[in-house]
Amino acid sequence: MCLAIPHTLIAITGPKTAIGRAGTVEVEVRTDLIDTPAMGDHVLVHAGFAIERLLPDEAAEVEALWESIRAHSVTASHE
């Protein structure tokens, strides 16, 4: 329902605008929807607006999720 792409903010250009980099592309991003945007922030951008800061895939929450999935997968492979 909503494509959103990770961007890194590489410049803050105004109170509500920044330049975001996604892969090799640089594009203007609106920052109205996030608190205190700063250079280097990893954000999720939907339709030109940053909608949230992103946790990296290495974050503890993500690891914990996959740890629990792996637990069920391991049982399966032993049966």
């Binding site: 792409i5 892969g23 592309v25």
Partner: peptide, 12 residues
């Protein structure tokens, strides 16, 4: 190429 996939990601 990364240059292509970046544009594709952004524009869908």
């Amino acid at each position: 190429p990364d240059t292509v996939s970046s544009v594709c990601d952004l524009l869908g």
